[in-house]
Nucleic acid binder design. Structure first.
Lengths: 219, 219
DNA sequence: GTCTATAACGGGATAGAC
DNA sequence: GTCTATCCCGTTATAGAC
């Protein structure tokens, strides 16, 4: 097995340590010593700590968002004729996401923890990255959900989509609150089960009758 | 208006800065200079940065958990006769939470951001705090939800409760993903609306039919 | 209880040799 | 592309005067 090059070793180590300790809690020195490279290498290859984070995020998120986009293409194509199904939209949102970090060369758990942890970092650091990575897709999801549930205002659709994001992030982060059952039978190892459970919850949440006093048309 | 004492000024300033920058991203110097106290004062009054965080969290979370406990008392008392209502349980969970940080002497937005941010901090830092603050209550919520929805396994009830926590945390954090509508009409200023929306979503999610192949009795 | 001063250490970034 | 060495600044924590 050929040895990985410096840049990749930095990415792998940084991904893991950022996931464990957060952005501010991670020192480049910890990264470079774990990656067994020189401190200066990270500045040579990435320019700054912040740019390193951005590249780590993009490397892992891009593939799953491509898969989401492919599924949305298909759903949108059919949406011209019949309203799309909420189940299918939710599946397009969840299923690629739980595969985040899969692959032989990747510590899936670290990748997922990092992706979720991002949402806890300071706004000015991550808002541009999140917008960059997820902005277009989010708009497409909301548009499709609006077609699937025309009785909901645009604003309420957006809220519910954000709730779904909250569910997914929380699950991905494996930040279960206070381990209720010590040997909780459900961790992310059983992907299918967790997706089934999330999907049931989210689909039914999205299909709830409007919570607002009727203000149709939304926006 | 009498001036606040040193300890309280530290708590207020630290709360705000922890909320903005996270634990590792906050320096005690930033705190003490914002609070206009001496650096050494924080060690005198709290002992360490970590103990300061714990005290900040407890100061704000304790009142809302007392309110939750009171509501659970009432629901549990009636649960001997008839199964409790999911709506009521969810209300007991959500309504006190969105009041987090209310009160004249408190920057509600900062308090809520901090409470949510906690979940992104390193495990070893916050897991004891979360367990301490929320462990007992979580078990009571799950037990009541299990009585309200006996067709669900214990494990599935726990998952769904965690999903509800995810929704709440995400809303409280005001970390909406990629501001879909720039002038999103819904921020936390309209508490009643946000609770109505969360409640509709969560109640319907909790009431979804079992996602697992029937494995009754759970646990 | 509050201050100054300092210990003891770690941070990101960069210049310049190789 | 990779290294060493260093700049320059910030970190928590504590000792000890007042």
């Amino acid at each position: 097995m050929r040895e990985k090059d410096t840049k990749e070793r930095i990415l792998d180590a940084a991904e893991r340590i950022f996931a464990e300790r957060g952005f501010a809690g991670t020192s480049l020195r910890a990264v470079t010593s774990a990656a067994d490279v020189n401190l200066a290498a990270v500045h040579y290859h990435f320019g700054s700590k912040e740019a390193l984070l951005q590249e780590i995020l993009h490397r892992r998120v891009a593939p799953i968002n491509q898969e989401r986009a492919k599924r949305l293409d298909r759903i949108e194509a059919r949406a011209a004729e019949e309203p799309p199904s909420v189940e299918e939209i939710v599946a397009a949102f969840l299923e690629p996401a739980v595969q985040l970090g899969d692959g032989p060369e990747s510590d899936g758990r670290a990748v997922r923890a990092l992706a979720a942890r991002i949402y806890g970092e300071p706004r000015e650091l991550v808002e541009p990255m999140i917008r960059e990575e997820f902005g277009d897709l989010s708009r497409r999801f909301v548009a499709l959900l609006g077609r699937a549930r025309p009785e909901l205002s645009r604003s309420e659709i957006e809220s519910r989509f954000q709730f779904a994001v909250g569910v997914l992030i929380f699950v991905i982060a494996e930040r279960y609150v206070s381990n209720l059952t010590p040997d909780s039978e459900l961790d992310l190892n059983d992907r299918e089960a967790i997706v089934r459970r999330m999907s049931a919850f989210i689909v039914h949440g999205l299909c709830a009758p409007p919570a607002d006093a009727r203000s149709r048309g939304g926006s």
